Computed example of a mutant assay.
Amino acid sequence: MTDTAVGSRGMFRSLDYFNARLYFAGLLFSNIGSWLQLTATSYLVYRLTGRASDLGYTVAFQFLPMLFLGTWAGSFADRFDRRTIMIVTQVLLAAQAMAIGVLDLTNNISLPVVWGLALFLGVVGAMDNPARRGLITELVPTAQLGNAMSLNTTVMTGSRVFGAALAAVLVGPLGTGWLFILNGLSYAAMIYGIVGLRSSEMVPAVKRPAGGQPVRDVFRYVQSNRRLSSMFFAYVVVSTFAFNYSVVFPKLADVKWGSPDAFGWLLTVTGIGSVVGALATARFQTVPLRWLMFNVGVLGAANVFIAFAPNLLVAFVLCVPLGFGGAAMIASGNAISQQESPPDMRGRLLALTAVAFLGSTPIGGPITGLIADYVSLEWSLAYGGVSCFLCLAVLAWRWR
């Protein structure tokens, strides 16, 4: 795997460009806030009901719009100005965070309200995701896209280290309501990171022409490309069944390991592994498919071993490879999708990647929660690891 890697300094080569530095700085601060909210939402729902299945339904409501709107939103982002789209979506995301925070602080929060606001968050997020990731293609030259996508994954997952840790520290003295408010304020950093971009240094975006069949075109292209179709198969299987640990961790920490407040710290340690995994992927000039497959295996093994961890200390240790394998797989998929993409299809392929990864959550999240509540707490996590191994077996057979 070293033949396509570059030196360690090359991990951050995209940051040689001002626009990339500004954008990723805004993204980092904003996503620390987002992880505050994600962690707080899990604390809130588990506090309201104590059921993992309700956490599964919450993530289902949040990501269901991605399943139905994601590919169309990618076509929209390929057609119109991504900066304008993002400014609108960031304002709406901030409003959602403020709304749930005020309702929580005034004791007007309930599970249906959480689900309704999660659905709104999902609709706005479905529009924001392809525009946000597509904008990265305008920040650096084409030769640096793979590195920029990996750094994007580093920021998105690495912010979990700080966001989840802050949530674990602040949820006691402040409560979940103020964590939502803090997230709402954090969107100012992302808005500044968009408005402050230097137009003269932007890489011109290749706009999709009006008309045609943009959604069908991207499906046809993926089907005709062996590397892309293999990558998307892995994305769908693994993200559906092996990326739902946030649904299970609150109950595992409470029931199995006897520490209900440990959920945020479990996410923090997972985030540390995620940073390392994403940076390891950023070293590649061209990300090979076998690197993605290797990390599917790492993620699968981590799921199985954490499920049967005898205590919290062992679980913390195993969260590092869990984060590493997951982030490296995500970064690899994003990079491969851009390596294989025609310029006018980048937004749609990124959106399809998001649909494959996030759009499958409405299926896997509730399944995982129901298994945790009514079948086996351990196997609600371990079955995801088994699905990773089955995925690898199918891909090995396909590429034999």
Score class of each variant (00 low, 15 high):
L395R: 00
P204E: 15
F243P: 00
L48N: 10
N244H: 01
T353I: 09
F29Y: 10
T154R: 00
A60Y: 02
N147K: 11
L135I: 13
M98K: 00
A165Q: 09
Q285F: 06
G297T: 14
G74N: 09
A356Y: 02
N295P: 07
D128A: 11
A126Y: 11
G323D: 11
F357W: 07
L185I: 15
V386E: 00
A189Q: 04
A188K: 03
T268N: 03
Y192G: 03
T286W: 08
F249V: 10
A335N: 08
A143R: 15
V394P: 07
W178P: 07
L64E: 03
S150I: 12
A95T: 10
S150T: 12
A99F: 11
A99I: 15
L312R: 13
F180L: 06
G273D: 06
A60R: 01
A164Y: 14
D373W: 07
L392C: 07
F263G: 00
L139F: 06
A148F: 03
A210E: 15
N183W: 12
M149L: 10
V171Y: 03
A131D: 07
I336T: 02
K207F: 14
G175N: 12
G33E: 01
Y17K: 12
V375A: 14
L151D: 00
V155C: 12
F241H: 06
W178S: 11
A20M: 15
T154K: 03
T154G: 07
L44W: 07
A301M: 14
S332Y: 05
P260L: 12
G7M: 01
E340C: 10
R198G: 10
A309E: 13
G101Y: 06
D261I: 09
R216W: 11
I272S: 04
L44T: 08
S30K: 05
E138P: 05
L55T: 14
L266H: 02
A131R: 09
A262Y: 03
L135T: 08
S360R: 03
T281S: 07
G116Y: 13
L228R: 04
S186F: 02
E201F: 09
M149N: 01
T4P: 05
D54P: 10
R400N: 13
Y187M: 11
V355R: 01
L350K: 01
A328F: 02
Q285L: 09
G184I: 05
V123C: 13
W397Q: 08
L350V: 08
